[in-house]
Simulated assay, not measured.
Amino acid sequence: MKETAENPLHLKSVNHISLVCKSVEESIDFYQRVLGFFPIRRPGSFDFDGAWLFGYGIGIHLLRAEDPENLPKKTEINPKDNHISFQV
Protein backbone atom coordinates (compact mmCIF):
# COMPACT_ATOMS: atom_id res chain seq x y z
CA MET A 1 0.00 0.00 0.00
CA LYS A 2 1.33 3.42 -0.89
CA GLU A 3 2.50 5.56 2.02
CA THR A 4 1.64 8.87 0.39
CA ALA A 5 -1.23 11.34 0.50
CA GLU A 6 -3.44 8.38 -0.48
CA ASN A 7 -2.48 6.64 2.80
CA PRO A 8 -1.79 9.39 5.36
CA LEU A 9 -2.11 6.97 8.31
CA HIS A 10 0.40 4.51 6.78
CA LEU A 11 -2.05 1.59 7.06
CA LYS A 12 -0.37 -1.73 6.27
CA SER A 13 -2.90 -4.48 7.00
CA VAL A 14 -5.96 -5.51 9.00
CA ASN A 15 -5.07 -6.10 12.66
CA HIS A 16 -8.22 -7.90 13.78
CA ILE A 17 -11.90 -8.42 13.14
CA SER A 18 -14.41 -8.25 16.01
CA LEU A 19 -17.54 -10.38 15.93
CA VAL A 20 -20.48 -10.25 18.31
CA CYS A 21 -21.71 -13.78 18.96
CA LYS A 22 -24.38 -15.62 20.91
CA SER A 23 -21.97 -18.16 22.39
CA VAL A 24 -18.28 -17.40 22.77
CA GLU A 25 -17.56 -21.09 23.52
CA GLU A 26 -19.33 -22.37 20.38
CA SER A 27 -17.64 -19.70 18.28
CA ILE A 28 -14.20 -20.58 19.68
CA ASP A 29 -14.89 -24.22 18.83
CA PHE A 30 -15.76 -23.34 15.22
CA TYR A 31 -12.79 -21.05 14.58
CA GLN A 32 -10.38 -23.43 16.33
CA ARG A 33 -11.61 -26.85 15.16
CA VAL A 34 -12.87 -26.00 11.67
CA LEU A 35 -10.59 -23.14 10.61
CA GLY A 36 -7.44 -23.78 12.65
CA PHE A 37 -7.29 -20.55 14.65
CA PHE A 38 -5.89 -20.73 18.17
CA PRO A 39 -6.81 -18.78 21.31
CA ILE A 40 -4.42 -16.08 22.49
CA ARG A 41 -4.30 -14.19 25.77
CA ARG A 42 -6.81 -11.39 26.14
CA PRO A 43 -6.29 -8.41 28.48
CA GLY A 44 -7.48 -9.28 31.97
CA SER A 45 -8.87 -5.80 32.46
CA PHE A 46 -11.84 -6.52 30.19
CA ASP A 47 -15.01 -6.96 32.23
CA PHE A 48 -17.07 -8.60 29.48
CA ASP A 49 -17.12 -12.12 28.04
CA GLY A 50 -15.06 -12.71 24.93
CA ALA A 51 -12.04 -14.39 23.40
CA TRP A 52 -9.19 -13.56 21.08
CA LEU A 53 -8.00 -15.96 18.42
CA PHE A 54 -5.18 -15.77 15.91
CA GLY A 55 -4.16 -17.62 12.79
CA TYR A 56 -2.86 -17.03 9.26
CA GLY A 57 -1.83 -13.50 10.24
CA ILE A 58 -5.44 -12.65 11.19
CA GLY A 59 -6.82 -11.77 14.63
CA ILE A 60 -10.45 -12.50 15.50
CA HIS A 61 -11.98 -10.98 18.62
CA LEU A 62 -15.16 -12.71 19.75
CA LEU A 63 -17.50 -10.65 21.92
CA ARG A 64 -20.52 -12.13 23.69
CA ALA A 65 -23.68 -10.24 22.74
CA GLU A 66 -25.19 -8.23 25.59
CA ASP A 67 -28.54 -9.89 24.85
CA PRO A 68 -27.64 -13.14 23.06
CA GLU A 69 -31.23 -14.38 22.90
CA ASN A 70 -32.27 -11.35 20.85
CA LEU A 71 -29.65 -11.41 18.11
CA PRO A 72 -31.19 -11.25 14.64
CA LYS A 73 -31.80 -14.74 13.23
CA LYS A 74 -29.95 -15.43 9.98
CA THR A 75 -31.79 -17.92 7.79
CA GLU A 76 -29.85 -17.46 4.56
CA ILE A 77 -26.53 -16.14 3.32
CA ASN A 78 -26.81 -12.52 2.24
CA PRO A 79 -23.75 -11.25 0.32
CA LYS A 80 -24.80 -7.67 1.18
CA ASP A 81 -24.70 -8.34 4.95
CA ASN A 82 -21.66 -8.16 7.27
CA HIS A 83 -19.32 -11.08 6.64
CA ILE A 84 -15.71 -12.26 6.58
CA SER A 85 -14.26 -13.96 3.53
CA PHE A 86 -11.12 -16.13 3.63
CA GLN A 87 -9.03 -16.81 0.52
CA VAL A 88 -8.23 -20.51 0.40
Rank of each mutant, 00 (worst) to 15 (best):
R41P: 15
H61D: 14
D81N: 12
H61F: 12
E69T: 12
P43F: 02
L63K: 00
P43Q: 02
E66A: 12
N70D: 12
G44M: 07
I17F: 09
F38E: 13
E6F: 02
R41K: 14
P8G: 01
N7K: 00
D49G: 02
E26S: 11
P39Q: 13
D49N: 10
W52A: 06
S13D: 15
K22C: 14
K73C: 10
M1D: 13
L19G: 04
F38W: 02
N82I: 06
D81A: 15
K12F: 06
R33I: 07
D47I: 07
K12P: 13
P72L: 06
Y31F: 13
L9V: 08
S13G: 15
I60V: 14
S13V: 14
F38R: 08
V88H: 08
G55L: 01
H61R: 09
F46G: 00
G50K: 01
D67S: 11
W52Q: 06
I60E: 10
E66S: 12
R41E: 15
S13K: 15
S13R: 15
Q87L: 09
P39N: 09
K2Y: 10
N82A: 12
D81P: 05
Q32A: 14
S27K: 00
M1S: 14
H83R: 14
C21S: 05
E6Q: 10
I17H: 04
V34K: 05
I60M: 08
F38C: 09
E26G: 08
P68T: 03
D49T: 09
F37V: 07
F48Q: 04
E6H: 03
D67N: 13
G59H: 00
C21D: 03
L62G: 00
N82M: 07
L71S: 00
R42N: 02
V14S: 15
R64M: 12
E76A: 09
S18H: 01
N7T: 01
S45N: 11
E76T: 08
L11E: 13
T4K: 00
K2V: 13
P43L: 03
P43A: 03
I77Y: 06
K74Y: 09
H10F: 00
E6N: 09
I58E: 05
S27T: 10
E66I: 10
T4V: 07
G50N: 03
I77F: 11
I58C: 11
F38V: 11
